[in-house]
Design a protein around this nucleic acid. Sequence first.
RNA 1: GGAGAGUUGGCAGAGUGGUCGAUUGCGGUAGUCUUGAAAACUAUUGAACCGCGAGGUUCCGGGGGUUCGAAUCCCUCACUCUCCGCCA
Length: 423
Amino acid sequence: MLEINRIRTEADAVLKGLEKRNIDAKQTVDQILDKDAQWRLQKTELESIAAELNQIAKEVGDLFKQGKKDEAENAKNKTADLKASEAGLKLKVEELETEIQTLLYTLPNVPNEQVKAGKSELDNETVAEAGEEPKFTFEPLPHWEITKKFNLIDFELGVKITGAGFPVYRGKGAKLQRALIQFFLDEAEKAGYEEFIPPLVVNEASGIGTGQLPDKEGQMYHCTVDDLYLIPTAEVPLTNIYRDVLLPNDQFSIKMCGYTPCFRREAGSYGKDVRGLNRLHQFDKVEIVRLETPENTEKALEEMVNHVKSLLEKLGLQYRILRLCGGDTGFASSMTYDFEVYSAAQKKWLEVSSVSRFDTFQSNRLKLRYKTADKKTQLAHTLNGSALALPRIVAALLENFQTENGVQMPEVLHSYLGFSKID
RNA sequence: GGAGAGUUGGCAGAGUGGUCGAUUGCGGUAGUCUUGAAAACUAUUGAACCGCGAGGUUCCGGGGGUUCGAAUCCCUCACUCUCCGCCA
């Protein structure tokens, strides 16, 4: 959620920024400003009435103590009218507050100045590209055939047990999952991230904190009996560790990582790129999350990008990095880098990581603040990224490193796997 | 699932109708002392909002009520803990 103060003081800049998302927010912003002006007016009036009532209450107390009963009764009578208008004003003020908040919820984050305007993924900028496209002397198989051939993942069995999008990993397929998770966690730890194993279900307040609720309810599985949600990413529990926290300024940077399964309903995306591992309802991911002071956010983002880069390089995968254009940048993000690996058999790029800075957009909702050196309270910045999401990495590994009689595993994984080749 | 206790500032923990945004301790900050540090001592130290400011308002788990006045009384909801039962 954008800070109301930002809209008050730099409405034009906000509007201009949102234009890069192809959004004309003029009407919304004007409404917010209008309601905010009313709110301040009514609020001031309400407060002065409250002050008056407090004053009278004090007088009555004093009068009673002095035994002046009649005067006290007189003073009491004065409150009736004031209380009536107080109640009316209170209603109005509360109404305005919810209206303003509802409007604020509809505004996405303002893109960073480096972000280019654009409508869709077609306008994203490729900022880096590395690795080589694998060459084959035979027709490479798509990963869903490789997993079947070597009995690595059983999609049909998942359908039986649960439903589509819940694969069953087995044998070397299961070991590969475990090896990748362990490898990613070890790398994150080396980079200074503290590991967490958070709960996989969260309450409503946490969902609101990171912005999944109230809008994007359709994305999460909801356990209605207990009113809890299955996490769509470790970002939710990890970032919420710091919900309602006021940090001293010497605790930065805060770097957290965690492996969790992620659950996504993917409502409305049926039929699109759902083959094999491309889109699942449950998948594994190692996430990195950072809390930063505003001065350090840019550097932190760069470090995270380099971290993800190094993972892909160690795995030997061809990849490219995109800076998303305004229209393709997520609602809460002010700048996002997507990492894609090339799938040799599907002949397309697969997104394997998304690294974003949110500035104060999340912390505003989370009430995640810190004390500056001169003891002012300020909202902290949050960032997060996948490092990495497993399914498409597995897909790319299987497809790109396949040989005529098996799949060669990258060397960094050998010690984790206990084998070097799937055959 | 049954019974009971609790929720107060960064933390611990007092407060049962007005002088309470709240005693006290710890922690934090500044100072005195010290070659330096520790200890001791002294002072200071919650947050949000409105206002140029003076100042004002709100907040003692959430919501509602009683009252001139609520941390304190009443209703309601949520959560936490303890004991018993069941289970890993």
